[in-house]
Design a binder for these strands. Structure first.
Ligand code: ZN
Ligand code: ZN
Ligand code: ZN
Ligand code: ZN
Lengths: 174, 174
DNA sequence: GGTATTCATGTTATATTATCACATTCCTAT
DNA sequence: ATAGGAATGTGATAATATAACATGAATACC
């Protein structure tokens, strides 16, 4: 395993060049990211069990946002359980511990690009190719905290998702 | 109709003091907001038909975020259709034209507090009382646009939703 | 090592949210 | 008046998510 087959998976539908827009940061792709996750789990005493690890791998390999049932299909093909809770539990674990994010607009999940870094992510979703990029959202989050504070609201968690056009689709359209 | 029964509906579950946190701006409550919507529809040549109007009224009266099926139940009780598309179509219309917003985190809908004003709303969701406040999100949206631009992404629409604690629940907890 | 306790996995069943496809009716504009 | 389009209604089904409970594996404690 860990083959840096950075290419695409065969059976995919919309080819979603989901890599971060423009110069894609490959440093955290599949293999490496997984190793990193292992490490993190060790440190934090989390149990990255086979299903959970495999679910993360699936997200990493997909390199785009995919739904729980799609993850489930893959898991069950490989001998894990065939019922929805299998996927939802693994995904919930990954999300709870920062290995993945949930994209509410798409009812889908995506591997985190900066696991363990305590970041404030925002998500940029291309309306044409469906790519999802995780971007640095510190300033956005600060503005959000401020807006909340202005009415006495304490922000604990946030989902910040933008739909628009990614640079590659924009250039094609032009 | 149009009774300004600004009060609450009887059968509600979690009492969600959904009015905007702190000093609630009642100026746009039920009756008035509805009249305003009528006006707007006139100007823009939109067809605010009975189902659509009633769906908006239901959102306004609820004064909190409610799901499509809850809206449907009310609509069907009043002689409108009994099938999901009835509610979803009315709600989609309201959302598309800015009379209401969709809260993705809750799979729910809420009447807009500033219809027709071309605003950039953000939503503050209380984790304790489930209240949803629509707040001014101009600065947040600007930061988001900038973050997108930094990677060549053009933001067209955004959903910005925060979960946290509203001031009234915070004071109770203290 | 043995045992209690917790956590993880799996299953069946069901709940919740959302869309498709098609017939009919209602408006609107020639 | 009449053709075209928009709106409503229906039945059917898709897609997403959770509840409830049984079994099995890891861990903690003695
Ligand atoms: Zn991340
Ligand atoms: Zn694109
Ligand atoms: Zn609004
Ligand atoms: Zn509250």
């Amino acid at each position: 395993m860990n083959t840096p087959k950075d290419a695409v998976q065969p059976g995919g539908e919309p080819v979603a060049q989901a890599r971060a827009f423009s110069s894609h940061d490959h440093t955290l792709c599949s293999g490496h990211a997984l190793a990193l996750a292992e490490e993190m789990a060790q440190e934090r005493n989390l149990r990255l069990t086979p299903v959970r690890r495999r679910a993360l791998e699936i997200l990493l390999e997909a390199h785009r946002a995919i739904g729980a049932y799609e993850v489930l299909e893959r898991l069950s093909e490989e001998g894990f359980g065939k019922q929805p809770p299998v996927a939802y539990r693994a995904l919930d674990f990954l999300v709870d511990h920062g290995f993945a994010h949930r994209i509410r607009r798409l009812n889908a999940f995506v591997a985190c690009g900066h696991p363990g870094e305590d970041h404030a992510p925002i998500f940029l979703i291309c309306r044409d190719c469906n790519a999802v990029a995780e971007a640095e959202g510190g300033p956005v989050r600060n503005a959000l905290d401020a807006a909340g504070a202005a009415v006495g609201f304490v922000v604990e968690r946030a989902s910040i998702e933008a739909v628009g056009q990614c640079p590659s689709c924009a250039s094609v359209a032009a």
